[in-house]
């Protein structure tokens, strides 16, 4: 690992000035479970780390009639234990419990989870997020792409978004709040994830001197929801495909729906097609299957990952059935 400066501010104000002053060479450090690995592998080399874990205002969950406000520093382990999440946000609770490993969940923060960098093995081998060879040829399109994107992969970005928490949050309509030198802003969480077109763009709508402060979840007490993941190994492994679904029901009929897939695209993938397919229907094997087919209809698999189309389809189908009460 290369040498770096280390700062540990206790307020967001201090943190912002420390981030700005290093003129692009500073990075926010939260739980460090991703950032330190990136530094050891020499993928990122910040001049300065700004540790935000001493900023108390960024930690903790507040519940009100408007829903939940989750501080960016809240760990995945604490979130998984939060009574409100366990009670009303079962898709999120499941996603939290299945993510990574207990050790990592104890360290990993929600802000860090949303801002973590892709696990694309070309990227992690120092070949860039949009890896190309010297002649400019896309390395992923013709290379080892078994874990890469099947949707949203028309451009140079073919990695998959790494958070298994984000799809569940997006399914509930979460918003993300940020603070920067010019003040605060808020945006729907799905808009926070962007598909980069050039190597110097990030896969987040996050400026170098901005900090994620919190995530806001609307109330969900009267919603049906579920999360389904497909992983090869039972633990300490990355999912191959996930799906989170949230339904507003009217009797046994789906009135409104959000279906979000993970690990299929460079961003969490909100499927309008799947939602439309199930709205107005009751939940059954047949309607779940139809919605699942709709979810992957636009998929364009690469040379090695056609199987992921099937996995994504199954994840959506099983998530819908699980939300509908099937085991």
């Amino acid at each position: 690992m290369r040498a770096f400066e280390y700062a540990s501010p206790t307020s967001t104000k201090q943190a912002l000035s420390l981030l700005g002053a290093a003129s692009g060479g500073a990075l926010v450090l939260a739980g460090g479970t991703d950032l330190l690995a990136l530094m050891k592998d020499d993928i990122v080399h910040p001049k300065r780390l700004v540790n935000i874990k001493e900023i108390r205002e960024l930690d903790g969950v507040a519940s009100s009639s408007l829903g939940l406000r989750i501080g960016a520093l809240t760990t995945l382990a604490d979130l998984a234990d939060n009574v409100n999440i366990v009670k009303d946000y079962s898709a999120l609770a499941d996603a939290l419990n299945e993510a990574a490993s207990p050790q990592i969940r104890n360290m990993a923060t929600l802000g860090g989870n949303l801002c973590q960098r892709p696990r694309c093995w070309y990227f992690r081998n120092g070949l860039g997020l949009l890896p190309k060879d010297q002649s400019g040829k896309d390395l992923v399109a013709t290379g080892e792409n078994r874990y890469h994107a099947i949707l949203g992969n028309d451009g140079p970005a073919k990695f998959v978004s790494p958070s298994s928490i984000a799809p569940a949050l997006i399914a509930y309509g979460a918003k993300i709040r940020l603070i920067g030198p010019n003040g605060k802003r808020e945006l729907p969480l799905d808009k926070f994830f962007v598909i980069p077109k050039t190597e110097d763009q990030r896969e987040h709508d996050l400026k170098r001197d901005e900090i994620v402060t919190e995530v806001v979840l609307p109330p969900a007490a009267d919603l049906k929801s579920a999360h389904y993941e497909i992983r090869q190994k039972d633990a300490f492994d990355w999912p191959l495909a996930t799906a989170a679904v949230v339904f507003q029901m009217s009797g046994s009929t789906v009135q409104s729906a959000r279906v979000v897939m993970g690990y299929v695209a460079p961003t969490p993938w909100l499927s309008e097609e799947a939602a439309q397919a199930i709205i107005g229907k009751s939940i059954s094997e047949e309607t779940a299957k139809a919605a699942a087919d709709a979810a992957v209809q636009a998929a364009k698999p690469l040379s090695q990952n056609a199987y992921k189309v099937q996995l994504a389809r199954v994840a959506v189908k099983r998530a819908i059935l699980k939300a509908g009460g099937a085991a």
Binding site: R119, D133, D234
Partner: peptide, 25 residues
């Protein structure tokens, strides 16, 4: 051991994508 013909390197030289069975497996 996953090798990449375009770059000639092993892509999964780590213990995330060089998977070993874990306790649950």
């Amino acid at each position: 051991k996953v090798m990449d013909q375009a770059t000639g390197t092993m892509l999964n030289a780590n213990m995330e994508f060089y998977r070993l069975a874990g306790y649950n497996d």
